[in-house]
């Protein structure tokens, strides 16, 4: 871990700025209830107040709610979705990929066909269908994002397993009579982790973008303020009050950009020889 920290480009301006942005977003998410105890739905001023007017840093929305407050609370949803909707598909993809790669044959075939199916269907379309059918809530959004984002993890893990399962240390473990679960979890998985950790950072960014898009369409959790919802709800007043939709969109953009840059730095630190980047 310490060695990894040493390899990160701590003097690179982009890296430092990205880390700073992400820290601010985390701080906003954690401090929202203390900074804005009235919650994000509270009407605090005149509708569509301009940024920097009447003590509103970012202005107010169409019915006079503070945009800054909305962005503070929206950070909670984005980070929660970013973390949980990465962890769940990550575990699912690892499970599918590990089983497919370890057992091979018919199991592998069946699981890979299933993976291909979920890679073929349009992701955002399937996510919308799932959220609509399961009724919009933070839970259904996380489930929908998870359902569409596990296949790349499964493929990557399967590939690593196919290579590793024929190595001597795995064969030794098999010969010593240990169970499959123990070999998968304690011998192969730790060795396959490097490349898939890098993928996780990209998945966090994708999950945040997907949630924003789902909420923009109007399928967000009705009880939670989200950046995508803020943009979607105010796009009809774009001509008169641009800031109401531009500000929350900017929040999504900066957060995702910061995560992508950090992921890039992490990739270079973990896999120094891979010059191809994470988006391959």
């Amino acid at each position: 871990m310490r060695r990894l920290a040493a390899r990160l480009p701590r003097r690179d301006i982009v890296f430092v700025a990205s880390a700073a942005i992400l820290l601010v977003v985390v701080a906003m998410a954690l401090s929202a209830p203390f900074v804005f105890p009235g919650g994000p739905w509270e009407v605090v001023g005149p509708p569509m107040a301009r940024p920097l007017s009447d003590g509103f840093l970012l202005g107010t929305d169409t019915i006079g709610r503070s945009l800054l407050s909305g962005i503070f609370y929206g950070a909670r949803v984005s980070l929660l979705v970013g973390i949980v909707a990465t962890a769940l598909p990550f575990l699912l993809g690892m499970l599918v990929g590990a089983v497919a790669g370890y057992y091979g044959g018919v199991v592998d075939d069946a699981l890979m066909r299933l993976t291909e199916l979920f890679q073929t269907v349009p992701h955002f379309m399937l996510a919308l269908v799932l959220v609509a059918i399961l009724t919009p809530s933070i839970g259904s959004i996380i489930i929908a994002i998870s359902v569409v984002s596990w296949p790349p993890v499964a493929r990557l893990v399967r590939g690593e397993f196919l290579i590793l399962r024929n190595r001597e240390f795995v064969e030794a473990a098999v010969l010593s009579g240990r169970g499959d679960a123990s070999i998968i979890l304690r011998e192969i998985l730790p060795n396959a982790l490097g490349p898939i950790v890098v993928m996780a950072s990209l998945m966090v960014a994708t999950a945040i973008l997907l949630e924003a898009a789902i909420s923009f369409i109007g399928l967000g959790d009705p009880n939670l303020m989200s950046w995508g919802y803020m943009v979607g709800a105010s796009r009809t007043v774009l001509r008169t009050a641009w800031w109401v939709s531009v500000m929350p969109g900017l929040a999504v953009f900066l957060t995702v950009l910061a995560i992508n840059f950090l992921g890039e730095a992490l990739n270079e630190a973990l896999n120094p020889r891979s010059a191809l980047g994470t988006m391959r």
């Binding site: 995508g228 943009v231 774009l238 531009v246 969109g249 999504v252 995702v256």
Partner: peptide
């Protein structure tokens, strides 16, 4: 260009262009 547009929500780019 790649990193920036890869991080931009599609709906936001659309609204900015309209603006």
């Amino acid at each position: 260009v790649s990193l920036i547009f890869y991080a931009t929500p599609l709906f936001w780019v659309g609204l900015l262009l309209v603006l």
